[in-house]
Design a binder for these strands. Structure first.
Lengths: 210, 210, 210, 210
DNA sequence: CATGAATGAGGCTTCATTCAT
DNA sequence: GATGAATGAAGCCTCATTCAT
């Protein structure tokens, strides 16, 4: 997913530029992961990326745009990690695969994941663009819900509500685990995943799941 | 509720101090709500609070401490708003009251609520103190879960897991609503609340709720 | 010496004031001794003196005046310590007593002595007043030199030159010792004192000292 | 002499850097000479040096380091001025040349000399590094004393004591003169220099000097 | 294209001084 | 007289951004 995005960009900007662009983004991601957005200085990014401070401005208009592009980039990473193989199997299998991938991804202290969480509640800058991308990237999940609803399998609720009820818990639990507050057992996770699935299941559905 | 905390503080610090202390806290809260932590400058706080810049330092050691105290204060506000009347009624009634209050509180674009969300993923500064307070403030919710488990009503899961499964959706939905992405109908909310309740219910329980 | 000065002041200002005046001066002296003039803040002085910050301004016009008064006060202390019993004995005995007292006083890390050295090379503020006082306080030493010259015992040089040649070394050695760079033996000091005395002695003088 | 130091630095730091580094140091020196260390503000240094405030921080970590480097720089200047041609002639000639240079240098109201005196009694910060440099820079003087002692010409005393007895008077007299308190005649100075030399001379030495 | 030195506005904090109590 | 809360100017320093090389 992200690779696709990057390739698109590299076609436009040429290989060399792509290289530095990428370096800068990765450096920023790493720094934010370590010290939050507050810890992000252009000089630090430059040093970490191994380029001169001025060079950043050849790829990004200013700091705000760097952050915006990073948000978009990281969002792509998260989406592609979570939605990998999303089209294989039954609705339930697909839901649970996404749920588990979301949990497992969110559990990791990787730069991408750590920086991702920094953007969540940023003040209202450029949000429109981000939201659009988010919609686009997570369209497969929305489609899954729609299909489930069409089959009478999933409750006829707004996709965002389904997401809040069934997916957000995976993120919350992953965060709790990553922060070392709890060490969930695999069976707990499987169980929670199942509970989430059942939570949005149509009441009249007969499920084979225990 | 928050008033209780404030009164305690005012007993300790004396009335005069309480006054400015409070003013500064409210100003900071407002600024963070509007522009995020990044937008918080001591000068801005001073202006908004109607005091001189230097005055802030009579009440707070430095910017970090101001933010820490604000986090604690806002956390108290949120907790007291959500846990108001939490001990009245059956387990289910109590759970649902908390859920609804959480949703309704989170939906508001009040300074306290908006600033609250800014702290969620801050880099790990002073987190220990915050966590301790959080545990303490939300103890009633945890007790509710424990009682439910003791009665065989609620699944025997870790309280944090129960929270993630049943409460976090309220917060997520509130956020979505507050941001104007969706305008949930009261019946949707009631329904979601019930789904959350059922999600953590023991499977052998016979519920009258449909 | 200082006592005289203080008494004069106390007659004018009354006993109570004298008390706080003194307290503030001693506090400032202590603080400067510990951290240099740079470390002197009015708040610190107030705290150390056990008075309110505003109180200082009832006794001193501003910080500059506090420092000026302290300089004068400390100068008095030093002079009276060094010139104690200065009129007893022969010229030589009197010279050597002063020399030894100067060395011994300068060796101590007392607040008065430590703060004294902070003023030595201050930029040219209020120097006129200080110089006048200095002249006045050290008049006995100058008289000693004059008497020595009149008796043909001491070289007919300017008193300041005699001071530089014969007295300053005592101060320098004391400082070196106080800073822990050298630990002079009593006999070294006696010897140095004698060398200083001989240095300004008239060449035609027959001295019994070897 | 100082130029040597500077050239060394410029070889290391490159020409451009050397230029601004030097400018800043000279500006700071000038400001301290005029108003003491208390009068040194980074803004003032920037203005005087003709650079932006932030530029200073490319060359000096912070104000403390700027002051430390300036101390070292000025110490080097003083040492090289005083010890110029120090190895030519007999022990006595060498001693007297240093003494005279010390007096003549100390007499000047040059920025370097004026700022030099400001550092003398600073609170104990970074003193170790300064002392080491001082020892190193003034090693030739110490060697002179050692040679004089080895030849039985100079009293067998600690070099610091010899310095206090014979050299410090030069500094004190220079200061007095610079401050306009006295205008010494050349013959006075020559005489004082000779007295200082004789003061540390071994008693059994037959001197041709009057 | 890339560099990195330079800029200077702006942020945090201190502190001498005032003034209502 | 005494207090100490309040002030706000001024100090140190950072950092996004520019531009000559």
């Amino acid at each position: 997913m992200k690779i696709t995005l990057m390739n698109e960009r590299s076609f436009i900007l040429g290989y060399t530029m792509h290289n530095k662009y990428e370096l800068i983004l990765r450096a920023a991601e790493k720094i934010i992961a370590a010290g939050g957005i507050q810890g992000l200085s252009m000089q630090l990014v430059a040093t970490e990326a191994g380029v001169a401070a001025g060079t950043i401005y050849r790829y990004f208009k200013d700091k705000d745009q760097l952050i915006l592009e990073l948000r978009k980039d990281v969002l792509s990473q998260v989406a592609s990690a979570i939605l990998e193989d999303h089209q294989i199997g039954t609705i339930e299998q697909r839901f649970k695969r996404i749920w588990m991938k979301m949990y497992n991804y969110g559990k990791q202290p990787s730069p991408a994941n750590l920086s991702y969480e920094q953007y969540a509640n940023l003040p209202v800058i450029n949000t429109q663009e981000i939201r659009q991308l988010e919609m686009q990237l997570f369209a497969p999940l929305q489609q899954l819900f729609e299909q489930g609803k069409a089959q009478g399998l999933i409750q006829p609720l707004h996709p965002r509500m389904l997401y809040a009820l069934a997916m957000e818990p995976a993120m919350t639990m992953a965060r709790t685990c990553r922060r070392g507050l709890i060490d969930y057992q695999p069976k707990d996770i499987t169980f929670a995943c199942d509970l989430c699935w059942r939570a949005i299941l149509s009441p009249n559905t007969t499920t084979a799941t225990i």
